[in-house]
Design a binder for these strands. Structure first.
Length: 783
DNA sequence: GCATCTAAAGCGATG
DNA sequence: CTTTAGATGC
């Protein structure tokens, strides 16, 4: 084990405390009373209950600065954990800005996982790993589990690997090693869950690998079994700060409690009303229990909101009031005036998308006393990602620029994982999982049979797959085209491996060489699907990302934890994302579509977790509303197509919880009268509102009409956009029958021209009408 | 060994 | 409806 003092992170990070103390402390001046209290109470346990938009990050960064300036701790003695890399990055820059100087050494400001990797590399041998262990992504985990399931003669059809993975994840979130899984879980996964968990852990150790859950679990295990190690860190980390404490799971909680066990200088920041990750193992209980865990804790409430109008806050408060067992907070603001929260019902999901599209266009120009807004200021927040499609389709048709936030993250993408597998294999030839992944990608004529031969050979000689492959070739066990290709792959890998030591080739050049010579780049160049250009683009991004690292090895060690889906595109765009992805963000204008019972609150959530599930959904509604600064529009549709089936739905029960005084009900032309929704059906809301709801909705002709027609496919109502800009110039470049390419739908032929829109029969996506400027001539594809 | 068809499942998402 | 994994056929 390397000595404590060797650790990079523990040295060279000092910033002269005296030099800073001499500076004035403007960071305290623009804090309000509560924020200031939270910042100045440096010693002992502190719970900062920070509502949405109350300047939480500001207080947190001021606290770090205060610790540094007051000389309580050096930058490398502060442990500061966040959940996302984005949050970590933001805190780093804000601390730097507040100090008025860039500060290199905040090595322990990062995500739980990033910090645990750093620690675990130092102590890996205590849990049977080498310090250069690899971190598996979900894909690798799943493949491993499938192998185990097959080896145990379990029918994967009846007992899917995904289920087992979910189970193991949950156990790890609760900090249960295989031997600690309680008997109550014994029946899980056909009574073989624990057994397979044990095998999985053993296999990980063989592979010198661990998964994300292990990063924390191993550290907890080490701290519990080696008090001397724990004590070192308890002493070293003089102050601990935790962001988004309501999202911590049991393993993270134990980890924190162990580290804070000595001095108890721990400050947890969170908002129980924004706990929306229960299904991922987060325990709201952690935050509710804080004062019991840390007796004498100072609890500070940040309740003054600087983000939203009073109407928006009132609406959010009205909804969240429905939850039990809250720590209790009431947001308030000095701001006056503003628009009420708007509520509108639609016939179906497409109508909803159409209306929101038009609304966005008129807000762009400014309307009814609302100033013009950039598209960057507007966001659509949906409950489930499949709701996004309706908006994408509509926005493509009317030519409204949008960006989808979330989606598959950069490093989870197929091409990135493939490329990384090549790099992994070059750096560590014993990485069998990487070998399996790329041996026949691109296609080398090595199918099941050849791969089984390699596996068998490797087992026979007790060597890695790559070594087994080499032996298999030498002994002529794999013949024909595949054999030759495999020989070439092995030789290439060996050659690239030697090049890692070559001073004349930078690791970026090497990465390019690997991708080119393996045929991987060519594979995508020859691919004619619409995704291919984007994938090549991503590979370029990947190589660019290498720049910040010393070598391939260094890059790989960090990549699983630091890669973000971050491509800065030019031009203003409206954002579309899930409510989960929206946490921590804010927008002047927010649309919240799809407020229908079953969709939101989600049926699945309620089925799985009952009242707890419903309460988490309610917090999600609270998070959604509080993202809005000026204008918040909630909508629901009477009919929606789910998995191709038309289904009718009732307005969300959360709509009844919106306080009427702060809501303006909009009535779109030609639709049933607006009004409150499902109160009667659930007995929610006040008596008056409930009766009003019955009168307005259930007995209204419009509602009855809606009910009657709900089983039929609704006729879409073509209505031209008020703000249509016809770009005939773009259309003139095309003619009937021409073959064209579209970013989203791929290749197709023009079958009609109408105004500025083209009707195109796509090869894969069917016939669609799209705006001409999103279409390229076939020979003008922007690769 | 690979391409093409067919059946079944998909609901929320960070490291 | 869409995607994807597995089976089937060539």
């Amino acid at each position: 084990m390397s000595s404590f003092d060797d650790m990079d992170a523990f040295e060279g990070a000092s910033l002269s405390a005296r030099a800073m103390a001499a500076r004035p402390a403007p960071y305290l001046d623009d804090l309000n009373e509560a924020q200031r209290a939270a910042v100045e109470q440096l010693d002992g346990p502190v719970l900062m209950l920070a509502g949405a938009g109350t300047g939480k990050t500001k207080a947190l960064t001021a606290r770090i600065v205060h610790l540094l300036v007051s000389g309580r701790a050096r930058p490398n003695e502060i442990l500061s954990v966040t959940f996302t890399n984005k949050a970590a990055r933001e805190m780093k820059t804000r601390v730097g800005r507040m100090l008025g100087q860039q500060i290199e050494g905040m090595p322990w400001l990062g995500t739980f996982h990033a910090i645990c990797v750093k620690l675990l590399r130092r102590h890996a041998e205590l849990v049977g790993l080498k310090s250069n262990f690899t971190i598996l992504d979900t894909d690798d985990q799943l493949r491993l589990l499938k192998q185990l399931i097959a080896a145990n003669n379990i029918d994967e059809k009846r007992w899917p690997a995904r289920q087992l993975l979910g189970l193991i994840d949950q156990w790890k979130n609760r900090a249960w090693v295989p031997s600690k899984v309680p008997a109550s879980e014994a029946s899980a996964y056909n009574h073989r869950g624990t057994e397979l968990y044990e095998q999985y852990q053993a296999r990980l150790r063989e592979l010198n690998a661990c998964d994300f859950g292990d990063l924390l679990l191993h550290m907890v295990t080490i701290f519990q079994a080696h008090p001397d190690v724990l004590e070192q860190y308890q002493r070293w980390f003089r102050y601990i700060l935790v962001d988004e404490y309501q999202d911590t799971n049991v393993a993270q909680y134990l980890w924190l409690r162990l580290l804070a066990g000595g001095h108890k200088n721990i400050c947890c920041v969170g908002d129980d009303d924004q706990s929306i990750y229960g299904w991922r193992g987060a325990e709201v209980g952690n935050i509710l229990r804080f004062e019991k865990d840390f007796p004498g804790a100072h609890v500070v409430r940040l309740e003054q909101n600087y983000r939203s109008t009073a109407h928006i806050l009132a609406a959010a408060s009205g909804v969240i009031r429905g939850n039990e067992g809250r720590l209790g907070k009431e947001l308030w603001t000095e701001a006056e005036g503003g628009e009420k929260v708007r509520l509108i019902g639609h016939w179906d999901g497409e109508e909803e998308a159409r209306w929101i599209g038009e609304e966005i266009e008129s807000l762009q120009k400014g309307t009814r006393g609302i100033d013009p807004h950039s598209l960057d200021d507007m966001a659509i927040l949906v409950r489930a990602s499949h709701q996004m499609r309706a908006f994408e389709d509509r926005f493509l048709t009317i030519g409204l620029p949008y960006r989808v936030i979330g989606g598959p993250r950069f490093y989870e993408r197929l091409e990135i994982r493939d490329a990384m597998a090549y790099f992994r294999l070059v750096v560590s030839p014993e990485d069998d999982l990487a070998f399996e992944r790329i041996v026949n990608t691109p296609k080398r004529g090595l199918g099941d049979k050849a791969q089984q031969t390699i596996q068998a050979t490797a087992r026979e000689f007790g060597v890695t797959l790559l070594e087994g492959a080499r032996i298999a070739i030498d002994e002529d066990r794999i013949r024909g085209k595949g054999g030759g290709q495999l020989r070439m792959l092995c030789e290439n890998l060996a050659r690239w491996g030697r090049m890692t030591g070559d001073k004349d080739v930078t690791h970026m050049e090497l990465a390019e060489i690997i991708l080119d010579e393996s045929g991987y780049t060519t594979m995508w160049q020859n691919d004619k699907t619409p995704e291919a250009p984007g994938r090549l683009e991503n590979l370029k991004e990947l190589v660019k990302a290498l720049e910040g690292f010393e070598n391939l090895q260094g890059f790989l060690e960090h990549v699983a934890l630091i890669m973000d889906n971050e491509t800065e595109e030019s031009g203003a765009k409206v954002s579309i994302m899930t409510l989960h992805a929206a946490k921590g963000l804010e927008f002047p204008v927010v649309f919240l579509p799809g407020w229908e019972d079953g969709l939101f609150p989600s049926q699945r959530s309620m089925d799985e977790s009952g009242l707890k599930g419903l309460e988490e959904e309610r917090r999600l509604a609270y998070v959604g509303i509080t993202r809005a600064e000026e204008l918040c529009t909630i909508s629901f549709a009477g009919n929606r197509r789910v998995f191709g089936q038309w289904q009718s739905a009732l307005p969300s029960r959360f709509i009844d919880e919106l306080p009427e005084a702060h809501v303006e009900v909009l009535t779109p032309p030609g639709l049933y009268g607006g009004g409150y929704g499902a109160a009667a059906a659930y007995g929610g809301g006040s008596g008056i509102e409930t009766r009003a709801a019955e009168a307005n909705v259930y007995n209204s002709p419009g509602w009855k009409r809606l009910q009657q027609r709900s089983s039929q496919r609704p006729v879409s109502q073509p209505r031209e956009s008020r703000t249509q800009v016809i770009d005939l110039e773009a259309v003139s470049a095309f003619e009937m029958g021409q073959r064209v390419f579209h970013q989203k739908f791929g290749y197709g032929a023009i079958t009609g021209i109408e105004g500025d829109k083209l009707e195109i029969a796509f090869e894969k996506a069917g016939t669609k009408k799209v705006v001409a400027r999103f279409v390229h001539a076939e020979d003008d594809v922007p690769f």
